[in-house]
Design a protein around this nucleic acid. Structure first.
Lengths: 345, 345
DNA sequence: CTGTTAGCGCCTTCAG
DNA sequence: CTGAAGGCGCTAACAG
């Protein structure tokens, strides 16, 4: 039974009125498959037929339906998924930029979903990506338990953890060398003559901050400076809390002469507090951003864009040859010295 | 560094080894449709059957295939597309965050593609989105001619221009009130007693900067200050060029006492140049960001996240009722006064 | 060179 | 409450 007279009533949904390949074929007076061949640039088509089909396609404003194509081609989409906590954080936005670039080089489109930093929302978000049949899934993990991902990975979808490893589950990972970076950053402070150096950042239970606090301790230990836990403030996840903690540090009887800030937000908060008190406390931060450069803040720098690129490339390697041990890629950091490690003007 | 061997059962293509609904049905000993009913939460299924199917699904690690579902449901994806020039610019990242939030409230996933600020790449990028049958397309236009979008819109896909209008084509648009914002920002400088106020930003041929330069002129004109075109520098699209232009301004025989910066990058460059010269030139910027706050720079502020939200909501309204005239939504801005409009410390 | 046939995985008729 | 067909738009096999 051929479907010659399909009644196209009203375009209830967008797209429902779009021409299909058979519409094009009919208008061009060729078979469906011939039209398909032309539209997919297959060889073995007479030139005159080709132009006839192409003309019909433009006349009908034909757009191939990638959904149908993807279904036909194994039910896998030509997309790569990125599950992110909060796109509002410029750091993750840059990672996304790196992924996007790399993906588009491979003809894949980036599909993104934010879990709004809510650990409970991570799994549904990931599931939705998987249902969309993304070719690979990159994610910045925030849930407490990622055991649920094990099965997915075994089903063949490469899963790459970005910026921190999964909890209770193995996977490919791309992270920065937080520990070494923090150590070197702290060392810059020591080299500048400081001995009483505080740490301001998030909870050590956060992978990145745990590593950074460790690096900070490494540096002090290496220089024979005893660690005073009262000036290790890991209670500052936001700009405001960082400013708060710094104020307390500065107002104490034995204030630090230098501060190592655990991330970009902490650095802003610390800087603000120092400015408020008018002290010349030295500062080194982790993460390089516009404001750090503008303010002359010395930092442990890295490249979030590269992180995205590396993660995407790792996913593609998995796609091309599924075998091999899990990889744990550690991206190096570098210390960018400006002025603030000496004092804050 | 842990190296665990990945167990690969069926190393074919990802997804090829995934269970389908009929696999689930077979294992559960029911018909395909019954399984489907259970998995879509339809009523009218005996509880015992339901659990049987659910058990089979988990056993098989079944994941519904959204590609097939979308094809079935009219060939339209449950996604919304965003074509962006450069995700690296925090401004656009924030717009994307707003879109993402709003989309996920509606059960849609964001698919994003960057054209890398290359006007030539815009159209292919848009086309790829359309082939993916996104329900709506938001884009930050950069091509010179958007006539090609007319037809697409008529085919039923809502198309919303974000941050600037299309060229040579009509569409729904969401923009900021750049002109009024720039006027008010410049006025703050005038109110602070400045009379010789320079403009540093991108080419006026860029919609946003054209408007902002106009607002700047409005303010000067309104205060009876003649416009000296030699201090209107629209040759500064980047941080570096902005710093360069500012340096020239500062080194001239008749330097300005204040500068209005056309956007976030310009503000950074201007600030850097002022710091380099050590002058106390006043500054007001367009766009509010961390560094502006950290540096005490007064700015014309707005909400990129809201812009994304508004644009997405407009798209959804179009989806729900396709009728009505094209809309041109203008988002207001506000002046945030810190210290730099008086002088730069 | 071109056409016919047969599904990809899912869900909505329409029957039992 | 459950099952049997049919088809969304497209392309890979096979013919001719």
């Amino acid at each position: 039974m051929t479907n010659v007279d399909i009644p196209r009533d009203k375009p209830a949904r967008p797209g429902s009125s779009r021409a299909t390949i058979s519409d094009v074929a009919r208008l061009a007076g060729v078979s469906l498959k011939t039209a398909s061949r032309v539209l997919t640039n297959s060889p073995n088509v007479k030139d005159s037929t080709r132009t006839k089909v192409l003309d019909a396609a433009t006349a009908l404003r034909f757009r191939p339906n990638a959904i149908a194509r993807d279904l036909r081609n194994g039910g896998v989409a030509t997309t790569i998924g990125f599950v992110i906590g909060d796109l509002t954080n410029p750091f993750y936005a840059l990672v996304a930029a790196g992924i996007s670039q790399t993906a588009s080089d491979r003809g894949l489109t980036l599909v993104m979903a934010a879990s709004d930093d809510d650990p409970k929302r991570e799994r549904p978000t990931v599931t939705s990506m998987l249902e969309r049949r993304v070719q690979a899934l990159l994610l910045v993990p925030i849930a407490e338990d990622h055991a649920y991902l094990e099965g997915e990975r075994q089903l063949g979808t490469p899963i790459i953890a970005v910026d921190r490893p999964l909890s209770h589950a193995a996977s490919d990972v791309v992270v920065f060398d937080n520990r070494t970076g923090a150590r070197d950053g702290t060392r810059a402070l020591i080299d500048a003559g400081h001995r009483r150096i505080a740490f301001v950042g998030s909870s050590e239970s956060l992978y990145t901050h745990g590593e950074r606090a460790r690096g900070y301790r490494d540096a002090l230990g290496g220089a024979g400076i005893p660690i005073d836990e009262s000036i290790v403030r890991t209670d500052a996840p936001s700009v405001e809390t960082a400013a708060q903690s710094t104020l307390q540090l500065l107002d104490s009887s034995e204030p630090p002469t230098a501060i190592f800030a655990g991330n970009n937000r902490a650095a802003i908060g610390v800087h603000r507090a120092i400015a408020a008190r008018g002290t010349s406390t030295a500062l080194v931060g982790f993460d390089d951003f516009d404001f750090a450069e503008a303010l002359g803040i010395s930092v442990v720098a890295h490249s979030p864009v590269d992180m995205g690129r590396v993660a995407a490339n790792l996913a593609f390697r998995r796609l091309d040859e599924m075998t091999g041990p899990l990889e744990n890629i550690v991206l190096s950091t570098s210390v960018t010295l400006r002025r603030s490690h000496l004092f804050t003007p």
